[in-house]
Design a protein around this nucleic acid. Structure first.
Lengths: 128, 128
DNA sequence: CCGAATCCCTGATGATACTG
DNA sequence: CAGTATCATCAGGGATTCGG
């Protein structure tokens, strides 16, 4: 409720059923959590990492190998963002050398549902 | 069928139900239509323009006014991309001065459904 | 093995001026 | 009104190197 939004709480939800203000302020659009989500999904490696983790948990270098072309830097960054957003859990095993496992959280798995719906829409468009 | 994909037809759909190859080749990931879609949704103005058009058809300058902060250049580019992807229809009225109207296509409106599902997921996460 | 720190470069975006 | 053209800027991403 009191999340600091000034009138455009969840733009997409609002737009399908309701009306947007006469002018959508840039700050509101940028602050919208839906905007944040599609931005994150849209950057170069997020979707791929998400799909790999949807299959099963992975070690860092495992992801690095399976995601052809990704740099260590970007894999780290992508995983960090996903972790910060609560979609991925990071578990460290105090072995020698240390092992780190990444896996989807419950919320991360829930995201796969609307994501599949989106993918279905994409596929439908090609069939038609 | 023969769409040139080498094994990763629709990654997201595949990943939720099936397995990905041992290594997902960069070219396949980049060529994936789902990847293309989330990239497009993720760029700076696409979502906002989509939401405004979800409400009703708009004239160019109308969109320019309602989308605070967008430049003419980026509004043009965003609309062009949406048009190329078949989500937005452009209609020119041969009046003086000329009027151009932008509206969602049937396919564009269908996109609102999975997009709403995604927005709902976002909202759920905040409530919890 | 799993990163962090640094440097660099290209593509995406913004500002401004001009036109049918 | 609805753009196009050009130039400037800036952030995302890649390569490389170093450390626990």
């Amino acid at each position: 409720m009191s999340d600091g939004n000034t009138g455009v709480p969840h733009m997409v939800t609002a737009a399908v059923g309701a009306r947007l203000p006469g002018q959508v302020r840039a700050a509101d659009y940028e602050a919208c959590p839906v905007t944040h989500t599609v931005r994150m999904l849209g950057d170069k490696w997020t979707l791929l990492v998400l799909m790999l983790l949807a299959e099963r948990a992975h070690r860092f270098n495992e992801l690095h190998r399976r995601a052809d072309g990704i740099s260590q830097r970007m894999l780290t960054r992508t995983l960090r963002t996903l972790e910060d957003d609560g979609l991925v859990a990071r578990t460290v095993f105090p072995t020698v050398p240390p092992g780190v496992e990444y896996d989807l959280t419950a919320r991360g798995r829930e995201l796969l549902v609307p994501l599949s719906a989106l993918a279905d829409w994409v596929v439908q468009g090609r069939a038609a």
